[in-house]
C-alpha cells in the first residue's frame, strides 16, 4: 500500500468518489420528484454532443467535448418538453423518443466520421476509462506535497473536483427552496418560489454533473450514481438531511469498493487481469440498494402494512 497505490489507484478512486458524490446529490431530488430517468436520458445524449464537438473542432480536447455534451443535454431537455407539450404525450414516452433518437444520431455520426486516429468510440463513452487515469509522477505518499508531481495529476481529477464542489455549494445554497418545492410544489408556489426555474435548474445541475462525471468514468456510473445511492438512502431514513448524508456515504462506499473489487478482486480468484472498474462500481451500488431494499428501516411504503393486512 505504498508508492504503487498512490501511483495507480489513488487518483482513480478519488475521481470515482467525486463523480459519485456529484451525481448522487442532485439524484436525491430527482428520485424524490420521480424524475430519476432524466439522468438516464442525459447520459445517452452525451454521445451525440461529444461527436458533434469533435466534428466541429477536430480534436478530442476536454473543454469542447464538455461544451458539446452540455449543449446536447440542454437540447434534449428542450426537445422532451416540446414533444410533451406539442404532442400531448406522457413524459416517459417523450423522454424515450428523444434520447434514443439523439443516441442513434450520435452512433451514425460517429460511424460516418473519420475517428480512426483519435480515441472516440461508443464503448469508451459507455464504460469510461477510469483505470487509465493514473498519476505517473507519483513516487509515494510524499508526492502529495511535491508541486512538480501534483502538476502532473490527471486533468480529469481537477475538473470533477471543481464540479463536485459546485454541486455541493449549489445544494447547500438552494437547500430550503429545493426541499420545499420538491415535497410540496403548491406550497412553494404560494410562497412565491420560482418552482419552474428550480426544476429546470435542478436538471441543468444534473446535466453538468453527468457531463463532468462522464468525462472521467463513462455513462454507466453516471446513471447508477444518480439513482442507486439516493434510492438506497431513501429507504434508510425519513429526513431529507439524513437521506442526503446517507446517499453521499453510499456513493463513496460504492466508488471505493467497486474500484478495489475491480482492480484486486480477480487476483483473489486467481485471475490476472482487472475487470471494468466502472461496471463494478455500478454493480456494488446495486448490491447496496438491494441490501437497503431487504433490510432498510424505512423500506416499506406508508400504509403498506395495512394494505397487506386487508388483503
Amino acid at each position: 500500500m505504498g508508492a504503487q497505490f498512490v501511483q495507480f489507484s489513488l487518483t482513480p478512486i478519488l475521481i470515482g468518489i467525486f463523480a459519485a458524490i456529484a451525481c448522487a446529490l442532485p439524484g436525491n431530488f430527482l428520485v424524490l420528484r420521480r424524475q430519476a430517468l432524466i439522468g438516464d436520458a442525459i447520459s445517452h445524449v452525451v454521445l451525440p454532443g461529444i461527436v458533434v464537438a469533435f466534428l466541429i473542432t477536430g480534436t478530442v480536447a476536454a473543454i469542447p467535448m464538455l461544451l458539446g455534451a452540455a449543449g446536447a443535454a440542454i437540447v434534449a431537455v428542450i426537445l422532451i418538453e416540446a414533444i410533451k407539450r406539442l404532442g400531448r404525450i406522457e413524459p416517459g414516452a417523450a423522454m424515450g423518443v428523444t434520447f434514443t433518437t439523439l443516441f442513434a444520431a450520435g452512433v451514425l455520426l460517429l460511424d460516418q466520421s473519420d475517428t480512426s486516429n483519435v480515441h472516440l468510440d461508443v464503448e469508451h463513452a459507455l464504460m469510461g476509462n477510469l483505470e487509465s487515469l493514473i498519476w505517473f509522477r507519483a513516487e509515494g505518499w510524499h508526492s502529495l506535497f511535491d508541486p512538480v508531481a501534483l502538476a502532473a495529476l490527471p486533468d480529469e481529477l481537477g475538473r470533477i473536483f471543481v464540479v463536485c464542489l459546485l454541486v455541493i455549494a449549489l445544494t447547500v445554497f438552494f437547500w430550503r427552496p429545493l426541499k420545499i418545492s420538491t415535497f410540496d410544489e403548491g406550497f412553494a408556489q404560494a410562497l412565491g418560489l420560482p418552482v419552474g426555474a428550480m426544476g429546470f435548474g435542478l436538471v441543468v445541475v444534473a446535466a453538468i454533473a453527468a457531463v463532468a462525471a462522464f468525462d472521467a468514468v463513462g455513462s454507466i456510473i453516471v446513471i447508477a450514481m444518480f439513482i442507486c445511492p439516493p434510492a438506497a438512502a431513501r429507504l434508510m431514513t425519513n429526513s431529507l438531511e439524513r437521506q442526503v448524508w446517507w446517499s453521499v456515504g453510499f456513493a463513496t462506499l460504492a466508488a471505493i469498493l467497486g474500484y478495489v473489487f475491480a482492480g484486486y478482486g480477480p487476483l483473489w480468484f486467481g485471475g490476472q487481469n482487472a475487470v471494468s472498474a466502472a461496471g463494478m462500481i455500478a454493480a456494488v451500488s446495486g448490491v447496496i440498494l438491494g441490501l437497503a431494499c431487504l433490510y432498510g428501516p424505512h423500506r416499506s411504503r406508508v400504509g403498506a402494512a395495512r394494505q397487506q393486512a386487508d388483503a
Binding site: 439522468g39 447508477a224 446495486g286
Partner: peptide
Amino acid sequence: GAVLSVFFGLGIV
C-alpha cells in the same frame, strides 16, 4: 433506473 444501470454495469464487468 437502478435495474438498468446495475445490470448494465454487471454486464460490462
